[in-house]
């Protein structure tokens, strides 16, 4: 998985196109509609979990390893839990942690990308070198090692740790865009207007690269969901929490493969891929929004 956002192409200048509302334009793209539809579907499932299933996801009341039937639409786990209940409640954890990780990464990316580009000089050199180092140090092994040390921690910590290892690409993209915006006349004009630095960075420059930030956020959420699932799958998260990742962990522990219990491990993995696809499609659409040449081709 590589990022679809190419920096040079995304010169964000909506003014020259006589824009309609960017949100409406976004939803004109069928990719965006499908992507958002998938995302909304899973959010809805997560929100409506108690309505969808009467069962407690953790209760081990049922006969283990039952195939799907009218009572248990997605069968039961090896421990006698209802898979559907686990699945819909698990959506809550997986989505929350993934999105939180994505937001964390984006926030760090904005600061670590924009500040050095705006300040320039040695500060920029040091921070951007640091960013490039974090970018090339492989994230998952680092995550595993950290996970091994802070064994059995809460979901919030996991989200923060994922966010803290996944911001570098966005910082790099935002840095180069900031570099190209910082010499624009309207930024110079804001300096002449006596505006303080934080005003220039967050009110003058940032709004003009919102599409990059949003595309990056989509991508970071995708990364966050995948990373969370990986950690949980390996038992490095909180194995007692209900999430799509822990479902896969327990499925492996309970030899779901050997027992042919496909209903146990197919739904969570498939959903991770679908949610990821949803984010990816939205990322695509945001990219298209700021890059007309990609639009005519789709």
């Amino acid at each position: 998985m590589t990022v679809i956002t190419s920096v040079a192409s995304t010169s964000v200048d909506p003014s020259r196109r006589g824009r309609t509302s960017p949100i409406r334009q976004f939803f004109k793209d069928p990719k965006a509609r499908v992507g958002f539809g998938i995302f909304a579907f899973f959010v809805l499932i997560a929100l409506l979990a108690p309505v969808i299933t009467p069962y407690n996801p953790q209760s081990t009341l049922f006969i283990p390893l039952q195939a799907p039937d009218a009572r248990h639409w997605l069968g039961t786990t090896g421990n006698g839990q209802d898979v559907l209940a686990q699945f819909v409640y698990g959506a809550r954890t997986s989505l929350t942690v993934g999105i939180l990780a994505g937001l964390t990464a984006t926030a760090i990316g904005i600061v670590m990308g924009m500040l050095p580009a705006y300040r320039g000089g040695t500060f920029d050199l040091v921070v951007s070198t640091f960013t490039n180092i974090i970018l090339v140090v492989p994230g998952l092994p680092l995550l595993l090692v950290i996970g091994a040390y802070i064994h059995q921690t809460g979901s919030l910590v996991i989200a923060l740790v994922i966010g803290m290892t996944g911001w570098a690409w966005q910082a790099r993209v935002l840095r180069s865009q900031t570099l190209s915006l910082v010499s624009r006349d309207y930024v110079v004009a804001a300096r002449l207007a006596g505006a303080p630095d934080q005003h220039i960075i967050f009110r003058e420059i940032l709004p003009n690269m919102l599409s990059l930030v949003v595309a990056g956020l989509m991508y970071s959420c995708l990364y966050g969901i995948l990373a969370e699932a990986s950690l949980e799958f390996l038992g490095l998260g909180n194995i007692n929490a209900t999430s799509w990742g822990t479902m896969l962990y327990w499925a492996t522990q309970g030899a779901a493969l050997l027992n042919g219990a496909w209903w146990w491990f197919v739904p969570p993995g498939l959903s991770i891929a679908l949610v990821g696809m949803g984010f990816s499609l939205m990322n695509f659409a945001v990219d298209t929004l700021s890059n007309p040449r990609l639009r005519e081709s789709s």
């Binding site: 200048d13 909506p14 003014s15 020259r16 624009r184 006349d185 309207y186 930024v187 110079v188 004009a189 804001a190 002449l192 207007a193 006596g194 505006a195 303080p196 005003h199 009110r203 003058e204 709004p207 003009n208 919102l210």
Partner: peptide
């Protein structure tokens, strides 16, 4: 500036842009 397209921030309203120096200076 020469190019009023480039010297006005596309993401901010007329009021925002004129008010900025009024507020800051």
């Amino acid at each position: 500036f020469q190019d009023p397209f480039a010297s006005l921030n596309p993401a901010r309203t007329v009021f925002d842009q004129v008010a900025l120096p009024v507020r800051c200076h």
